[in-house]
C-alpha cells in the first residue's frame, strides 16, 4: 500500500530530508511486489464540482461546471483550443481557486487529497537537476524514504524509456523526452487520481503509442485518469467517458463509444468532423 499513508502532515513540511528518517523507522512497506500491481492508496473519489466558475477579472473562462468525477475508466476531456480544458484540470487539481462554486473531494480520505493526486502539465516543468533527481524530488515530497527513492525513480524512468538518460540534465531533454519525464515523475508517486494535460502532444508516433499504453496500464491498475488530448484516435482507444467542452462549458458528457458514434451535441459533431472552430 505505497500511498495509503503518505504522512500528509509531514510529507509537505519536511518532505524529503527530515521526513525520511521517520519513514525508514516506520512501517516497512511491502512495496516491491505490490507496486507492479500498482494499487493506489487513498480513497478520495468522487470529485464534485458544484457551480464552478473561473472568471478572473470578470471574464468567464470556465463555467459554470457542475459535475462529479467518479472512479472508473479514464475520463477524456475533449474540445477545441481555448475551450478551457487545461483550466478545468487545474481547477480539479486544486491549483486554481474557482471564483465561484466549490471543488470538493468526497471520499473518506478527502483530507489527504493533495497527496493522492498528481498532474502532468501541458508544458512540462522540469527542475534544474538530473533526470533521475527530478523523479526523486517528487518522491521526497511525498515522504518516501531516502533509501527507496532511487529504485522507484528508476522504475518509472524505465517504464517511460528514459532509463539511459537518468544522469542527464533534465533541462537539455527534447520536448518529447521532457514530457515523458514529466509523466514518469507523476507516475512514480502512484497517485489515486492522475491528471494528464495532453501527455503525448510532443511525442513521435511510437513514443506516443508507448505512453498511451503506459497510461492505459496505470488506469487499469486502479488510478483514475483524467486527461485531455487532441489525438482523437488516442481518445477513442483510452476513453471510458468523454467530457466535451466548448467555450468554457461542458456541452456533453457521454460514455466513449456513444460519443464517438453519435454525439448528442451539434458542436461535438462538428468537432469530431474537424469542422469546429473556436
Amino acid at each position: 500500500m505505497p500511498f495509503e499513508n503518505p504522512a500528509p502532515e509531514n510529507g509537505g513540511r519536511d518532505g524529503g530530508r527530515d521526513g525520511a528518517g521517520e519513514n525508514e523507522a516506520g512501517t516497512p512497506r511491502a512495496r516491491n511486489g505490490a507496486r507492479a500491481a500498482h494499487p493506489p492508496g487513498g480513497d478520495i473519489l468522487p470529485l464534485r464540482l458544484e457551480g464552478v466558475c473561473y472568471a478572473p477579472e470578470g471574464r468567464t473562462l470556465v463555467g459554470e461546471l457542475t459535475l462529479e468525477l467518479r472512479d472508473g475508466g479514464p475520463t477524456v476531456v475533449l474540445g477545441a483550443n481555448g475551450a478551457g480544458k487545461s483550466l478545468t484540470l487545474r481547477l480539479c487539481h486544486g491549483l486554481l481557486e474557482p471564483t465561484a462554486g466549490t471543488v470538493r473531494w468526497m471520499g473518506p480520505d478527502a483530507a489527504r487529497a493533495r497527496w493522492a493526486q498528481a498532474m502532468v502539465f501541458q508544458r512540462p516543468v522540469l527542475l534544474r537537476r538530473s533526470v533521475l533527481a527530478n523523479v526523486v524530488y517528487g518522491l521526497a515530497l511525498r515522504g518516501v524514504s531516502r533509501r527507496e527513492r532511487p529504485a522507484l525513480a528508476m522504475e518509472a524512468l524505465r517504464a517511460t524509456g528514459l532509463e539511459a538518460m537518468a544522469g542527464r540534465q533534465a533541462r537539455v531533454l527534447s520536448a518529447g523526452e521532457a514530457q515523458r519525464l514529466s509523466l514518469a515523475r507523476a507516475w512514480a508517486l502512484r497517485p489515486r487520481v492522475l491528471f494528464l494535460d495532453e501527455p503525448t502532444a510532443n511525442l513521435d508516433p511510437a513514443a506516443s503509442r508507448a505512453v498511451e499504453e503506459i497510461i492505459a496500464a496505470i488506469g487499469a491498475a486502479g488510478t483514475k485518469i483524467v486527461m485531455t488530448t487532441h489525438d482523437l484516435g488516442q481518445a477513442r482507444r483510452l476513453a471510458h467517458e468523454v467530457l466535451f467542452m466548448h467555450r468554457g462549458r461542458v456541452l456533453e458528457r457521454s460514455p466513449a463509444p456513444q460519443f464517438f458514434q453519435q454525439p448528442n451535441n451539434e458542436a461535438a459533431r462538428a468537432f469530431l468532423k474537424g469542422e469546429l472552430l473556436w
Binding site: G12, R13, G15, R90, L95, A118, V125, L141, R185
Partner: peptide, 16 residues
C-alpha cells in the same frame, strides 16, 4: 513563475 504550479502540484510546502 516557472516552477510554482509544478511544486504546488507535487505538494511542496512553502518552506520546501
Amino acid at each position: 513563475r516557472e516552477y510554482g504550479e509544478q511544486l504546488r502540484s507535487l505538494g511542496a510546502s512553502p518552506g520546501r
